[in-house]
Nucleic acid binder design. Structure first.
Length: 307
RNA sequence: CGCGGGGUAGAGCAGUUGGUAGCUCGUCGGGCUCAUAACCCGGAGGUCGUGUGGUUCAAGUCCCACCCCCGCAA
């Protein structure tokens, strides 16, 4: 059971094993994008290509899903970023249980956006945890844990891809361990748990009074999606890429202090941040230098929190 | 029929009340300099998305149709 690209990697890895993948449960196609075109989740696309039966129930809590469960009769259910809570009858069904691949070192960053939150918080490491599922959100007993460094140059995309690969690797291992029958369970220390709540739009508004480092972490933690933003001359502008500098400035936070080499240097509460990739309102992604060349910004302009 | 922006030189843009196109960067050549991503001079490069469409003496600039791209919102 899974939905986005992150889950797809695990799914495709499972197919390479000797395990019998009997079906895929994923979210229903949803209207996305311009014109509300119906978009199938990545896992579905992959499943169809691999001739694995796909099921897209609206809910897991009704009789028709219970019937499907019996029909499929899984011995093990693997859940990766599925996007729905599994009811107790489902959790209890498989002989070997329901396991989950989570993109953090539990009990830290339980919840929906562990990868982004870890970057935004400036963590130096994160990882993958596999665990048995229970009714609580990411609270089940852990099975295996793999750590990985968050590099200064990582953004959400690069870290996501690394964790997706690591997650698939972890899953392979955990499945093997479960099959062997010698599974060890480790309880989570709830007192150390933190919750990585979904990234909201409000989380993405850049507050230039914060430190350059905090802003940089926000920008890279939300890039390439959903992207942080601020307003410039009455228009929204999103930030796709930034870097830290050793420049200093006494200018007020948010002011453009320099456009050297096409990069946009902005004063913050602590230090000057360099921005080298933007996405202007109504436009596509572009290098900061292109934005500068188009004469859309000049020294002294000020980024604000609202139009 | 969710809302909106746009298709003009390799890139990002401008183009006024319609008169065959300009800016910044890049690129090529030359110069200056100890040197340079700095500066100076010069050059190349565009059938202005498509339509053997409409209006007009004349359309990038107005009208019509079509294709494509993008942002927002979900």
């Amino acid at each position: 059971m899974g939905t986005p690209d992150f889950a797809k990697v695990c799914f495709e890895s499972l197919l390479t094993t000797e395990n019998d993948v009997i079906g895929v449960i994923t979210q229903p196609d949803k209207p996305k994008g311009r014109g509300y075109a119906l978009m199938p989740p990545p896992v579905k696309v992959s499943a169809l290509e691999n001739n694995i039966p796909v099921y897209q129930p609206d809910t897991l809590k009704d009789e028709s899903f219970a019937n499907l469960l019996e029909k499929l009769d899984p011995e093990l259910i693997v859940v990766v970023a599925y996007g729905k809570i599994l009811p107790k009858n489902v959790l209890d069904y498989p002989k070997y249980g329901c396991i989950n691949v989570h993109g953090s070192l539990l009990p830290k960053y339980r919840g929906a956006a562990p990868i982004q939150r870890a970057i935004i918080d400036g963590e130096k490491t994160t990882g993958i945890t596999t665990m048995y599922m229970e009714e609580g959100l990411d609270t089940g007993d852990m099975i295996e844990m793999y750590e990985i460094a968050i590099r200064p140059e990582d953004n959400f995309e690069t870290l996501h891809d690394k964790l997706a690969d690591l997650g698939a690797y972890a899953l392979m291992s955990t499945v093997k361990v479960i099959a062997s029958g010698n599974v060890k369970r480790y309880k989570q220390d709830d007192s150390k748990s933190t919750y990585a709540k979904k990234i909201e739009k409000a989380d993405c508004l850049v507050d230039f009074s914060k430190s350059a480092e905090e802003i940089h972490n926000l920008i890279r933690g939300t890039s390439p999606f959903p992207l942080s933003f601020a307003f410039l001359n009455g228009k929204m502008i999103k930030f796709t890429s930034s870097f830290l500098t050793d420049k200093t400035s006494k200018e007020p936070a948010g002011k453009v202090v320099s456009l050297e080499k096409g990069n946009v240097y902005v004063a913050t509460g602590d230090g000057v941040i360099g921005i080298d990739g933007v996405l202007p309102e109504g436009k596509g992604r572009m290098k900061a230098s292109d934005f500068v060349n188009g004469r859309k910004i000049s020294e002294g302009d000020i980024f604000t929190s609202e139009k």
